[in-house]
Design a protein around this nucleic acid. Structure first.
Lengths: 338, 338
DNA sequence: ATGAAAGCGCTAACAC
DNA sequence: GTGTTAGCGCTTTCAT
């Protein structure tokens, strides 16, 4: 059905080996101009497409990379994936996306499946802070770069955004507005984003004189609307913050629901800040003040590092931290004077 | 690095051919129980993973399928992809997602790239009503099923939702509320969803006695917030509908923006209905009345058809139409009596 | 029940 | 500059 290299060679009246050289830009110089033309013409005539499996079998490269994400339905990840895919495909690589459904076991399986597929490298956006699947894969010498989330232990190239700065901007904004009783609903501590942001929160609250009572803080088990709502109820049941800093936008949406359910107005009664600036966060009521993360850029950057690794060689433990920016919208205001 | 079948055979003290038979469920019966056990044990000990390229080269199957989507960042598609991937991976297939960025040329490229990769089949969610890339691929005998959008010409297996019914429910709802001047902002007519819904709209408006003046209708060039806003402005500049039926939720969001910008309240002054029920449409202000489409189910169903095609054989031109359901929320109300 | 051997389509080391 | 040859890891006849 599909033409093979042998067919092309035959039609051009040369040996398959010669045809191979003529078609490969790197070895093209070893062949006379005339033959190159003849072979290329034959290839075009037969609509020849090299068989990547045969080539891969020989070269031990698949020209495929795996992209592991925790949840493709989370609006956070498609831009990362697109940015990465764009770069990768320009570099001649095909990407295979695996969705772990936020499940550590499925992450193990996904990485295993991708490796069985012989991918040349991996982009992992689903890493936990202590992630055996990732560290062992890296230990075996597989090119892998972490995206969006960091992992501890081995020095793995990572592209993420500046969580400290994001939290600093959020806290400064809130404190600047006059808030001190600021509740924090961080994401899970086993994710670098949850952990780092919580740490940064404590740091800047201390520095700026905010209230650090334990009752103002409630960790979310997942980055979800439901968990955000649960955590919001827990905090509101025991105290009365004038502002809430949510671990991410989904959590913030859950908070918004609970605020409404309890007859608290946002931002008049309680100010709210999210994190990520997902699609449509500007369409909520009120439009959400949140920290904008350059997701596409993260994907692009990570893909570039991986690409360089695949072509040039292993990077020095390069960690790229992209800047973030607080987007002030309608969900934050001065606290009411009582 | 990775163990090969030869390694396994050696360790088990048998010939590679025998090891192959022992490991393959289909041929396992041809081998003595004892050898099967010995080989399997050796395989486990060496953490043997068959090399899919070698296997594929021999069997002429890659066990990969391509999934072509117009835009992964559109919340519509991740659920479709996930549903499909789930089914496919259970069937032993790996999926490769290609994003065409809503660009017909890139769709051609994507399909070509996927085919060059020798995928065993294709799921295409990006089809236009007249889609040469799709029809020619099908003509060449490549297993392909259309998802979400239909194409004309060849009888291609398709899984989509019931656009007529969705529009019928929306129009009945609006007319039932007392609206007659209902604006329609359909998606592009070169997409089956845009075309079919527009046709259904005219059909049911005629049947139910709605106003079908041309000035009430404005086609959107893309399914986007910006186009929705543009179309809304165009219509509002020339007439005063009491309700708007948007081609999809993104268009509806654009309409909402324009309504606000013009000081029109929703639903008091203008009712609004979307289509798809994307994530967070219930969090808009007002919560959007929209037609819920079972996206995950569409992906699942399509993957099952493809899987059957790949394993059993070509389906009779099976077209599956999944039911949809109008979700009434806060964006629709009776028109004000004037 | 198992071993032997050929070959999938391609690349690369080695002739000439 | 081009032909020859071997072999990547696997499956699958064909013998035995």
């Amino acid at each position: 059905m599909n033409a093979t290299l042998k067919d092309v060679a035959e039609r051009a009246g040369v040996h398959p080996g010669t045809a191979s050289r003529a078609l490969n830009p790197a070895t093209q110089g070893l062949v006379s101009e005339a033959t190159v033309r003849a072979v290329q013409q034959a290839a075009k005539a037969l609509a020849y497409r090299p068989n990547p499996m045969a080539r891969g079998l020989k070269t031990n490269k698949t020209m495929m990379v795996g992209i592991v994400v925790p949840d493709l339905s989370n609006p956070l990840f498609p831009p990362i994936v697109r940015g990465a895919e764009e770069v990768l495909s320009r570099g001649g690589y095909t990407s295979i996306i695996a969705d772990t459904d936020n499940d550590a076991r499925r992450e193990v399986d996904s990485i295993a499946a991708l490796r069985a597929r012989q991918v040349d490298g991996l982009l992992v956006a689903s890493a936990h802070r202590e992630d055996d699947a990732v560290t062992s894969t890296v230990a075996e010498g597989v090119p892998l770069v972490l995206v969006n989330r960091r992992a501890e232990g081995a020095a793995i190239p990572t592209v993420a955004s500046d969580d400290r700065s994001g939290i600093e901007q959020a806290v400064r904004h809130l404190v600047g507005l006059g808030h001190t009783a600021i509740a924090h609903l961080p994401g899970p501590a086993w994710l670098s984003t949850g952990f780092e942001r919580a740490r940064a929160f404590r740091h800047y609250m201390a520095e700026l004189g905010g209230d650090l009572s334990a009752e103002l803080s409630e960790e979310c088990g997942t980055y979800s609307v439901a968990e955000g709502a649960r955590a919001a109820r827990a905090v509101l049941d025991r105290t009365s913050p004038t502002a809430v800093l949510a671990g991410n936008d989904q959590i913030a949406v859950g908070v918004l629901d609970v605020l409404r359910e309890r007859g608290l107005r946002c931002p008049e009664d309680v100010s709210l800040v999210g994190y990520n600036d997902m699609t449509f966060m500007d369409k909520l009521s009120p439009p959400l003040t949140t920290v904008r993360v350059p997701h596409a850029a993260i994907g692009v950057e990570a893909a570039q590092i991986l690409l360089r690794w695949l072509t040039v060689g292993p990077p020095g433990a390069s960690t790229v931290t992209l800047p973030v920016e607080l987007v002030v919208r309608g969900s934050t205001a001065r606290p009411r004077t009582r």
